[in-house]
Each structure stands twice: as structure tokens, then as C-alpha cells.
Design a binder for these strands. Structure first.
Length: 970
RNA sequence: GCGCGGUUAGCUCAGUGGUAGAGCACUUCCCUGACACGGAAGGGGUCACAGGUUCGAACCCUGUAUCGCGCACCA
């Protein structure tokens, strides 16, 4: 078969991905007797596009999954997408505006939602197909979406259960309001950003003491119309005596002074060091002020509209203006009134809406909150101890330790330091605002009397009867609450009556609507559905086979940016909903290990973003370099727990590597494939033994690195082994045999090559799934294997194990061959160096003279000759070099390159001089150490011996250098 | 303010007490019968700084500087 000279990934990748799908290679069988390994994908936004973060994240998951299959596990990698409330709704709104110049209100809720679903149908498959292009081995038959009917039922059920427990409640609170998306946000969705602005100082008159003016500092003068008090610290001697008196608020200008009187109150919250020590209190527009207001029963005057513009209460001159325009206008008014004392440039932190990138507005509104469940368990289950050293030392031999025999029952974070961040968050946890004023999402499953009902005693009465009846019937999954508060109209405490309904009550909800009830219009925070992901995707609340087999999942791979949004909440949900005995789980925790990836940045260290345009399109990279190249390059530059500076050079490197692998196999194919079944130990050369020992070391190293989630270490070890050790040295050395005429040894060498390559392909497969599959079949390695061990696909070939003692004994793989062959290659390097010194072209064949220390086997001399591209390497134990002959000293002996009359004596002198200097420096350092009595006495004997030996070796090298130099002089 | 992480070759980073490493970039040579997406050889580092512990420190301790991140923030 003709093999192309360069690897062409495109057709190969498509072919094998189709093959894997057709053969159901990714499907997880819950009935399997094999030990389970499972991952749930962090669901990407349903309408999202693949970016480099996804590449990093999903490549890691694919590596873990493929490695687990090769370890003989039953693997479930469960894929899916997230409905991503705000993001998706904003996308559709934007498109609607652009294409039809309409808003969602023009369409109405129902019609708008139809459009979003249509949008989802159109764009929803894209990212899934992109993941397939990357080679992801997800079980696509189990793809889930957070708004699938079954999934929605889970969300509803969970809501009802938490509502029943009293953990979910509705309340009027200060929330983070995004004026652009016009919805409340959770604290986690607010990002603090330093902002340049001004600190404004203005004065107010104390009405009881017209000669007394107080100066107040503020960054938000536009909120003055909403001020309902001025606060000072009761212990502040400057102001304490004024408490109880009043000031005249300067804005709105047109109001008569008596309507602008606000009290001076004393509150400990006021820091008298800061500003002027006098604080304006705006309960409607500041969280801290709201709390002060609560303590002092201050009125709450909301002067803003939901979109961030000022309302009529802000006064004529401000009403209708955007809050930032209003700020400037307010300052103008203060100036006109002559009360603006000063304005100073000022930098402070302002909370921004993460999604819309505008300052959030603290706003008092009615929202749903969740008091987090299972907080203590969630805190305790994560291991705070750093066990990385333990892992390193114990896991090397035990390739399977990760999932089968956890070191403790705890969950492990990698890198471990995130455990502290997690713990800190849980310690200071606040109730979660879960309602969003959006349309796209899971609607809150609570019904209340409609406004119409509330204002009509007759309808209200009907509703009341219905609700009472419902309460008495005591349906499971239906909760009726009559809170104490609320205005009385007729018999019903109207406004606050709530009916919370679980899944499967469609008839009932119809009747409810007929009886004057209406469903709460809010939807739930997207994370209120994603926090159920590990079990809601596996058939919960039924006790499915999938849950029994694959929950808790083994590994979770995600970015640290969603540790609070997602990881922490999934853990709490796990303990809250999976602890029931019916699931028969040893632990309710959703995963045993969490691997936090770094954040992908560009090569200047900037975060990748659409606006910067510094985010390459992974699909474009795949088209140009191949998916394997992209995966390899990404993994190679992604050290554990560090951010990844992405550079296209890395992908290029990956492509080059695939090409190298391709050509190494091509080389083997060109050696007329007469492979023999077994390697014959009698015919092994020292180079053969060397490469087998190197392979053995590489297997251990790579396996250990993978067990510790050190993907970049594993990739680098693979790279080094394959390129430097196998290709650069072994393949070149083996040509001494392959180009010779001993057919038995030739066949044996090919057998060694096959052994090494078949192991190498398996070691590479998790990283480079496509090219390894292609070569696995192309090289014929699949042919002799049982179907479930590599016969059908390399996916199920066994992960290589380090060579055992029997094997090493049988093939005579003694470590001494490592030293011996290393010395041989060192001799070659030195010899090539001589060539450069003598300025002899690499292609010119020359004769070397070798003066060995010990007997050197002829076969090794053959290899040396070949690697030196020498005409001959003549062994001469009593060789006397002519003056200026370039020479090198190695462990195996001295090597000379006689050059008839071509010697550049000066150049050789310089070279030897350098060598002498280096050696003398090393000798001096070592001698100094050995001369130190403290050193000799206290150092471990082994280290002492090492130093002594080093001195002897160095001296042995130096002497001939000195001689050579002397010869040059004379 | 509190916490975390980084500072090692021009660049990106390995390196957990015993002779400073890799890849890329650079210099020189080579299209030698797998591969120019390749091969060979080479140059290049006071391991941020200052103290301390130790026979010995890139590594352990203390402090400083600096960059980044997270949390909390006072008008």
C-alpha cells in the first residue's frame, strides 16, 4: 500500500469518527460488569460556538475517557447543552431587533418563546457537531438539554421539595438589578470593577440650626432625591449632638423645603474616618443604606425605573434621564444652588452585570430566594489536605488507583488549592436569588391570585374556596400556603397566597387558572437547573440503572471561573437529592475528583474575547492542522492549574508531531514487512535493549502523569520518548541492521520496532485518537488482537503496562545497557562535534580513529560508524595523534578525526581551551566541597561517593585535554 | 483590607536539598535511501531582591518588590 509522505488528517478524521459512531464505541452500558468510569460534560450554551476554552476542557475529558476505556472501564461520558437563560434570550432579542425591528413585548411571551425554541433548533446542534470534530467520545445517544421535558420535571420537583422545606421563599429584598437585561442577578453574577469617577461634596442646612451646615460626600448625587435620612456615628463628637434634628435635602429643587426635611440619625455603620463622617442614606438604592433604613424605619423612596432611568420622584429636572446623565444634571443643580463644595476625582469599585457589562443597580424588589441546603456536608466532603506528594509516590505503579480505590472518601480538587477558595465561599454563603425577570427558562411553579382576582372580592372568594379545598385534598407535590401577612379582602389574605405545584399536575394548573390564579411570571436562574446536571441527566428521580452504575461520577473537568456558580451548587444538590437510601449509594457526592483547567489566554496573556478578536476559531485550526494537532498542542502547553497562553505555534508543533509519527510508521512499512511473531532475545542489540528500557520508563512516567492529571507532563514525556529517544537515536541506530544483510537480525529488529510502535500508538491514543487509529489498522496491529482488546479499534486496546521483571529477565533488559548505550551515543555526539570543528561537511564521509578504554563489540562499532556517517571507524589502541588532530574524550574512549593538512590549529586550540576551562571549573567546585570537613563528615555516604567518583571522572577527562593542548603547542 | 498563585535562557514553562532543563526563537551546516511539518552541531541563565536555616538552597523559613487572580469593601 502506498502511504502518503505527509499525514493528511481531514479524510482520516472523518472516516474514523464515523466508524466509531457506527460501531457504537462511545456507548455506555449500565449492565456491564466492568468497573464504571463516568464524566458529565459541563454543558455548553445551547446556541454557543466552540472556543478554545471548550477545546481545552473537552480534550481533557476525552483523554480521561479514552484512557479509562483502555484501562478496561465501562465509560460514560454524558454530553448535553444548557439553555443559558440570559445569554440565549439576549441573542434572540438582538436578532429580532435587527431583522424585524421588534422587541419581545411586540410579540408577547408565548410567541417570543416560540422564536427562542426555533432559534435553539437552528443553532443548537452546532456546538455538538464541533465537539465531534474535536474527536470527543461522548455517548451521544444520551445527549441532554436543560429544558428537555424530563429535565424540566426535575427542576420543578426540586423547587417544590425545597419550597416544602421552607428553603425557598419569596421576599422583598435588595437585589442586584441589571438595567439592561432588566432582571435580578445573583451575587455571583456581579463583577467588581475599578471605575474612575468623582467624589462630590455638597452641604446641607440643619433646619433647627440654620447656621449649621453639614458636608456630605457622595459618588451618586443623582440619588439625592431618594435620600430619607442623613446618618452620623453616635460616637462622633463632631455630630452626635445633631442626632434627632433635621436637614433640608437639596433635591428635587422644586419641592418646598418642608417636604425635603429628613432626619439626622445615629448609626454605628458610619465610619467617621471616611469622607466627611456624614452619610446620606438612600434606602432604595444602596444595600447598606437599605439596612440602615430598616434599623431606623426610614421610608424607601425608589426614584428609578427598571431600565435605569429616573422616575418622577427624582424631580422634574432628572425624570426620564438615564442614571448617568442624571448624575451630571444633579451636579449642575447643586452648583446652581451653591451647595456643591468640591468635586474630586475618585476611583472606586463598582459592581457590574457580568452579562451586560453595565453597572448593576441595587434595587428593592420581590424575588425568590434559596437558602442553600446541605452546606455543612458540602464543606466537609472536600479534602482540604494537600495529597499531591502522596499521589506522586503511591500512584506510579498503580495505574488504576484513581477511580477504584480512592485514597479517602473525600472529594479531591486538582489543583488542590481551589479547595480553600471553595471552603471560604461556603463559609460566607448568602441566600441565592433564583428568580429572573426573563421569559426563556423554567418558569417558577407557583401560582397566586391574579391581580384581577385580588381586586375583586367575588373572584377572590371563589379562589379562596378553591385553594382551601386544594389544601385539604393534600395532593402530593402540591403545597398551598396562606402566609400571615397581606391585606385582607374578604376572607382571603390575598396577595401572598401561594400554590406551589410539582410536575405531573397539568389538569390542576388548568383549573387553577380558571379559578383566578396565575403563574408567577419569573423564570429560574439557569444555574438552578444546571446544579442538578450530574443526576438529572441520568434519569433521576427514578432509580435508573444508569444512576446505579455511574453515579457518583468519577471526574469533573471545568474552569475555576464557575466554581461557585456550578461546582459548589452541584455538590450541595448532590447531598440534598441523592442521599436517599433508595439510590443505594455509598456517597451522594456528585463526583470524586474535580479538575480545574486554566483559563485560555492569548500569547500576550490577555483573556480571549470576541471583542478583542484574539480568539482563534478552533474549527479553522482543525481544518488547517487537524484535530489531533490541535489537541496535542493545547495539552502540551496546559500545565496543571496554570493559565494557558495559547499560541498557534503550539498547534503547528502538534501537526509536526503527527507528521513525525506518521513517517516513523511509514519507515517501518518500507522495511519489507517480514516481521516475526516473537522477539528473539539472542538477537537483541544493545540499542534494542536500550529502547525497550526507555519504553518501559516512558510507560511508567506517562501513566503516573495521567493519574495525577498532569496532562502536559504526560504529553512532554511522550514527545521526548518518541521523538528524541525513538526517532533520533533508536531508528537511526537500527539502520545499521536494517541496511545490512543479516536477515535474521533484520527481522528481529523489525519485531522490536513493531513492539515499540504498537505500545507507542496506544500511549498516544487518548491524546491523538484519529492518527493512532489510522496507524493501528494501517500497521496491521489490529489484526492479531481479540475484538475487545484492539482488534476492532485501538479505543479498546489495553493500556500498556510497565515491563515486568519476567519480561526484563527473559530479554536481558539490564539497566547497564542504558549507561552503555548512552555512552555510545555520547561518543557519536562528540564525533559529530569534531566534524563541525574541522569544518567538514555533514555529507562528506571521513575516517575516525577510536582509542577504546575497553573492548567495544563490533556491532556497536558498526552503529557508531553509521551514526557518524563515517567511511570507517578504525580501532587503534596505541594511536598517536598528529599535531592539531581534533579529538574527543568519552567514557568509552578517545575519538580522533585525522585531517590531512586541513587542521585549523587555532580553532582546535580555542575549542580545547574552552573544554579545559569548563573541566577545571567543575573540578575546582568538587574539590572545594570535598575539602570541606563539614561536608565530608555530615553528608550521606552515597552523596559523598558520588562526589568522589565525579572528581575522578573529571580528572580522567581533563588529562587528555591537557595532553592534546600540549601537543598543539609543540 | 484578607486570601491564593507567579517571578528560572529572547519567549512559554518544567524542575520539592546534592553538576541548572525542555520546546520555540537564534547561529552554523545538511534536501544522507521515514520525515525540510525534517536532520546535525552550537550559543544563551547571579534561578526577582534581602536576610536566615543547612556541609550544601532555584527548592525550606522570614521579609521586600513586582505581576496576576479571587473574596470583601465606606458614602
Amino acid at each position: 500500500m502506498e502511504i502518503p509522505k505527509a499525514y493528511e488528517p481531514q479524510s482520516v478524521e472523518e472516516k474514523w469518527y464515523d466508524f466509531w459512531l457506527k460501531q457504537n464505541c462511545f456507548m455506555a452500558n449500565p449492565k456491564s460488569l466492568k468497573p464504571a468510569y463516568s464524566i458529565v460534560i459541563p454543558p455548553p450554551n445551547v446556541t454557543g460556538m466552540l472556543h478554545m476554552g471548550h477545546v481545552l476542557n473537552n480534550t481533557i475529558q476525552d483523554i480521561l475517557s479514552r484512557k479509562a476505556r483502555m484501562d478496561g472501564k465501562e465509560v460514560l461520558w454524558l454530553p448535553g447543552t444548557d439553555h443559558a437563560g440570559i445569554a440565549t434570550q439576549m441573542q434572540v432579542e438582538r436578532a429580532l431587533k435587527k431583522e424585524e425591528r421588534k422587541t419581545k413585548y411586540d410579540l408577547g411571551r408565548e410567541e417570543f418563546l416560540k422564536r427562542v425554541w426555533a432559534w435553539k433548533e437552528k443553532h443548537g446542534g452546532i456546538i455538538i457537531n464541533q465537539l465531534k470534530k474535536l474527536g470527543c467520545s461522548c455517548d451521544w445517544t444520551r445527549e441532554r438539554f436543560t429544558m428537555d421535558p424530563e429535565y424540566s420535571r426535575c427542576v420543578q420537583k426540586v423547587f417544590v421539595e425545597l419550597y416544602k422545606k421552607g428553603l425557598i421563599y419569596r421576599g422583598k429584598r435588595m437585589v442586584n438589578w441589571c438595567p439592561v437585561s432588566q432582571t435580578a442577578l445573583s451575587d455571583e453574577e456581579v463583577e467588581m470593577k475599578p471605575q474612575k469617577g468623582f467624589m462630590y461634596y455638597f452641604k446641607v442646612q440643619v433646619s433647627e440650626e440654620p447656621n449649621t451646615w453639614l458636608t456630605i460626600a457622595t459618588t451618586r448625587p443623582e440619588t439625592i432625591p431618594g435620600d430619607t435620612a442623613v446618618a452620623v456615628n453616635p460616637r462622633d463628637p463632631r455630630y452626635a449632638h445633631l442626632i434627632g434634628k433635621h436637614v433640608i435635602r437639596p433635591l428635587p429643587v422644586h419641592l418646598p423645603a418642608e417636604k425635603k426635611l429628613i432626619p439626622i440619625i445615629g448609626d454605628e455603620h458610619v465610619d467617621f474616618e471616611f469622607g466627611t463622617g456624614v452619610l446620606k442614606v438612600t434606602p432604595a438604592h444602596d444595600k447598606a443604606d437599605f439596612e440602615i433604613g430598616q434599623r431606623h424605619k426610614l421610608p424607601v423612596v425608589d426614584i428609578m425605573n427598571p431600565d435605569g432611568t429616573m422616575n418622577d420622584l427624582a424631580g422634574e429636572s432628572l425624570a426620564g434621564l438615564d442614571r448617568f446623565e442624571a448624575r451630571d444634571v444633579a451636579v449642575e443643580r447643586l452648583k446652581e444652588l451653591g451647595v456643591l463644595v468640591e468635586e474630586k476625582p475618585y476611583e472606586h469599585n463598582v459592581g457590574f452585570s457580568q452579562r451586560a457589562d453595565v453597572p448593576i443597580e441595587p434595587r428593592l424588589s420581590e424575588q425568590w430566594f434559596l437558602k442553600y441546603p446541605a452546606v455543612e456536608q458540602s464543606k466537609e466532603c472536600v479534602d482540604q489536605e494537600d495529597r499531591s506528594a502522596e499521589h506522586r509516590s503511591t500512584r506510579i505503579e498503580d495505574g488504576d488507583s484513581r477511580s477504584d480505590a480512592p485514597r479517602s472518601d473525600k472529594m479531591h480538587f486538582h489543583p488542590q488549592r481551589w479547595a480553600k477558595v471553595y471552603d471560604h465561599w461556603l463559609t460566607n454563603i448568602q441566600d441565592w436569588c433564583i428568580s429572573r425577570q426573563l421569559w426563556w427558562g423554567h418558569q417558577v411553579p407557583v401560582w397566586r391570585p391574579s391581580e384581577k382576582t385580588n381586586s375583586n372580592p367575588e373572584l377572590l372568594d371563589k379562589a379562596w374556596v378553591f385553594a382551601k379545598q386544594l389544601e385539604e385534598n393534600n395532593h402530593s407535590g402540591v403545597i398551598v400556603r396562606f402566609p400571615e401577612t397581606g391585606e385582607s379582602i374578604g376572607r382571603l389574605k390575598a396577595i401572598t397566597c401561594e400554590i406551589c405545584i410539582g410536575p405531573g399536575h397539568d389538569e390542576l394548573t388548568k383549573k387553577l387558572e380558571e379559578s383566578g390564579f396565575t403563574q408567577d411570571p419569573d423564570v429560574l436562574d439557569t444555574w438552578f437547573s444546571s446544579w442538578l446536571w450530574p443526576f438529572a441527566t441520568m434519569g433521576w428521580p427514578e432509580q435508573t440503572e444508569t444512576l446505579k452504575k455511574f453515579y457518583p461520577t468519577t471526574d469533573l473537568v471545568t474552569g475555576p471561573d464557575i466554581i461557585f456558580f456550578w461546582v459548589a451548587r452541584m455538590i450541595m444538590a448532590g447531598y440534598e437529592f441523592m442521599s436517599e437510601p433508595k439510590f443505594g449509594l455509598s456517597d451522594a457526592m456528585p463526583f470524586r475528583n474535580v479538575y480545574f483547567t486554566g483559563i485560555i489566554r492569548d500569547k500576550q496573556g490577555r483573556k480571549m474575547s470576541k471583542t478583542l478578536g484574539n480568539s482563534p476559531d478552533p474549527l479553522d485550526l482543525i481544518a488547517r492542522y487537524g484535530a489531533d494537532a490541535l489537541r496535542f498542542g493545547t495539552m502540551r502547553s496546559a500545565p496543571l492549574g496554570q493559565d494557558v497562553l495559547f499560541d498557534e505555534k503550539d498547534v503547528e508543533l502538534g501537526r509536526n508531531f503527527c507528521n513525525k509519527l506518521w513517517n516513523a510508521c511509514r519507515f517501518r512499512q518500507m522495511q519489507s514487512g517480514q516481521a516475526q511473531e516473537e522477539i528473539n532475545p539472542q538477537l537483541l542489540s544493545s540499542d534494542d535493549k536500550w529502547i525497550l528500557l526507555k519504553l518501559d520508563a516512558a510507560i511508567s512516567e506517562i501513566t503516573a502523569a495521567l493519574n495525577n492529571y498532569n496532562f502536559s507532563t504526560a504529553v512532554q514525556a511522550l514527545y521526548r520518548f518518541f521523538w528524541n529517544e525513538y526517532c533520533d537515536w533508536y531508528v537511526e541506530a537500527s539502520k545499521a541492521v536494517l541496511y545490512g544483510d543479516d536477515t535474521a537480525r533484520k527481522a528481529n529488529t523489525i519485531a522490536v520496532i513493531d513492539f515499540v510502535l504498537s505500545h507507542t500508538l496506544r500511549l498516544f491514543h487518548p491524546f491523538l485518537p484519529f492518527i493512532t487509529e489510522e496507524l493501528w489498522h494501517g500497521m496491521g496491529y489490529a489484526e492479531d488482537m481479540p475484538d475487545d482488546q484492539g482488534g476492532k479499534t485501538i479505543m479498546y486496546a489495553r493500556w500498556p503496562k510497565p515491563l515486568d521483571e519476567d519480561f526484563k529477565g527473559h530479554y536481558g533488559l539490564d539497566d547497564c545497557y542504558l549507561d552503555m548505550v548512552n555512552a555510545k551515543y555520547e561518543l557519536v555526539t562528540q564525533g559529530r562535534n569534531l566534524r563541525r570543528t574541522g569544518n567538514i561537511s555533514a555529507s562528506k564521509r571521513v575516517k575516525y580513529i577510536f582509542k577504546p578504554v575497553n573492548f567495544t563489540p563490533p556491532r556497536d562499532l558498526e552503529v557508531i560508524k553509521l551514526l557518524l556517517n563515517a567511511e570507517a571507524v578504525e580501532v587503534n589502541e596505541s594511536y598517536q595523534a598528529a599535531k592539531g588532530t581534533p579529538s574527543a574524550r568519552t567514557e568509552l574512549g578517545e575519538l580522533y578525526l585525522p585531517l590531512e593538512g586541513l587542521v585549523d590549529v587555532a580553532a582546535e586550540k580555542v575549542r580545547l581551551g574552552k573544554e579545559k576551562e569548563k573541566l577545571e571549573g567543575d573540578i575546582a567546585k568538587t574539590e572545594q566541597k570535598l575539602a570541606n570537613p563539614n561536608f565530608v563528615q555530615k553528608v550521606p555516604p552515597q552523596v559523598l561517593a558520588e562526589h568522589q567518583q565525579r572528581l575522578i571522572d573529571l580528572q580522567a577527562k581533563l588529562d587528555p585535554v591537557l595532553e592534546a593542548l600540549k601537543a598543539l603547542e609543540g
